[in-house]
Design a protein around this nucleic acid. Structure first.
Lengths: 343, 343
DNA sequence: TTGAAAGCGCTAACAC
DNA sequence: GTGTTAGCGCTTTCAA
């Protein structure tokens, strides 16, 4: 069980009769070190099986090459794509990701933020939990000049940069599309409006109704956590409405898909009876029948963009504090689920 | 831009006129420290805004409370579920996860393993890339007594523990089920048989055929990377067979779903013309029509189990080296896609 | 182009 | 219960 002693730069230094400083520099490819010396160091390091100890370096240099990521959950299509994008960029630049999930719980998010702080991450990427009301837990990072970036679920704040899509415009587009298909009573499946994404989608929905002379009926806005179960329940709720709606715009695909299945079971025809459209362009959109109209929400790209900006800031290439928000392009992908009229 | 100086235990010690050691112990809740002193330390720490520096401690104590995870990709339903399970267990026990993806490339997997080693993770969890042929890159971990665990895509080795399902049995069950439905020509969509999971599923398929007097026809085994594109291509390949098969057993759902869509487009009726069954019990199984028969493969549970065992070992509660393999239960979930006969 | 010295913040070992 | 001492492995001055 006893650990074989760790090989350090001192071991290399001793064997080569040079100083540890030189070894350190040699291994780092410092330009002032003689080529020959550098080669000898590299060889000896290999011979002795030397492996650098990241910690020791971090302790001294105060850089950890680590980026903390806090997300609500990591097992959704959108989120795992975003993380994949971040990991790709990070890895390419010599950074590692410490990933933790808040499980949609603000308390856990706060704890996780502390952990990240204690681990002295070089930067932090956050997508907020459903119920996070303020960002006091992120202020210590600002104080220490550790950059924090939001993505997707951002907090409206001057001091942090966020990567988002234009949720208002997207919500508007979907709703307008449904109206153009002849829908007059459009249900909106909304999420917690504390979060920008759901708030803005709802606003876009309302505005589109208004602009097209369709009255806004608060009974048609069904708020939930947008889970699969919520999808089923929502369907039951819809089926019990005195007058059935003729359209549904859901703030995510996942919930809508389960809602659709339930509606179909009840004999509702989609899109003839109810035209539906979702949000995210999840993979299921192309699998469910009828194929689902949705807003393409590029998770991987959002992850890449967020990580790229953060790392560029860390490397001093750009300054993130000049940027308040980065808005990525989205697209309404029209499929059969919403096509009442041939276009 | 200048960093405010870091508050250390020395600052607390000085203000309280006690030693740094006492502060360290106090903060850790060491039992030998006077309750009163402990309280004073906690208060002062809070007052000064002290935050422990994980590194410094790690450097000394040689424990990092970090677990490295290397997976092929992190954006699949199975994988993100597994990671979610691991993160949950880890977080609960005060560990953090450093996650990286090999992108199915052995070279990158090796690099990632080095990084994890340099970061001095306390333990490592790996699911192998498609083309990894040996595990030389993991041996340094053994040498240093850093536990390594595999999950899903394991390596057959005496020295490492793996968490898997019985892929042979599962493959056997699916195939038998198709045979019982009257299938005589069953295509198998196989993955790279270098990986245990695909190898064993194929073996199970073969054995089931043999046991039930159905001849094994190598032309019916189509090997690919099981991607979505491969699904489409496979469908085309099937459609061009001189004699159509009457069953398909795919080594994953994802590929099969795209294959199904393509077959349906060509007018093939499922299950009447071809009965199909997949593997993983992805969420799409309940969404595609007809609903897909599959093997329930509990990603979250596998993640939890793997992390739990690793952490129990790290905490000295159990010794992982006594366990070679942990096999989780799976279940054949029969749905409409394979039901030629009413059962 | 190289080296000596100091110290990052913490904890283990031992002493009292 | 508490303190002293030393040192984890590295990098950063500063000096040569």
């Amino acid at each position: 069980m006893s650990q074989p002693k760790e090989i350090t730069i001192y071991d290399i230094a001793r064997e080569l009769n040079i100083s540890a400083t030189t070894v350190s520099r040699g291994l780092k490819g410092h330009p002032t070190i003689n080529k020959n010396t550098r080669k000898k160091i590299a060889e000896k390091a290999k011979e002795l099986g030397y492996t650098p100890n990241t910690f020791a370096g971090s302790l001294r240099s105060k850089r950890t090459n680590t980026i903390g990521v806090i997300v609500p959950r990591l097992n959704s299509y959108f989120m795992s794509s975003a993380l994949a994008g971040m990991e790709h960029v990070a890895n390419k630049n010599g950074y590692n990701l410490i990933i933790s999930q808040s499980l949609e719980d603000s308390k856990k998010e706060i704890e996780n933020a502390h952990t990240m702080f204690n681990r002295r991450v070089d930067g932090l990427i956050v997508s907020l939990a459903f119920n996070t009301e303020n960002i006091a837990h992120l202020l210590p990072f600002s104080t220490r000049n550790i950059p924090v970036m939001f993505f997707d679920r951002v907090y409206n704040s001057e001091q942090f940069t966020g990567v988002v899509i234009d949720n208002f415009a997207a919500g508007y587009d979907v709703t307008r599309h449904l109206i153009k298909q002849g829908c007059k009573r459009i249900v909106h499946l909304a999420g917690n409006t504390l979060r920008n994404v759901y708030h803005d989608r709802l606003e876009g929905y309302s505005q589109a109704l208004k602009d097209h002379g369709v009255p806004f009926d608060p009974h048609l806005v069904i708020t939930s956590n947008l889970s699969e179960e919520a999808g089923v329940e929502t369907a039951q709720q819809i089926l019990q409405m005195p007058q059935l709606p003729d359209g549904i715009f859901s703030a995510n695909d996942n919930c809508l898909v389960y809602c659709m299945l339930e509606l179909k079971k009840a004999g509702i025809r989609i899109p003839e009876d109810i035209a539906v459209a979702g949000f995210n362009n999840d993979r299921v959109c192309q699998i469910i029948e009828p194929n689902l109209t949705s807003i393409d929400y590029p998770g991987y790209a959002i992850g890449e963009t967020t990580a790229t900006h953060l790392i560029n800031h860390l490397l001093g290439h750009t300054n993130i504090h000049n940027t308040n928000t980065i808005v990525l392009r989205t697209e309404l992908v029209v499929r059969a689920s919403s096509l009442k009229r041939k276009e």
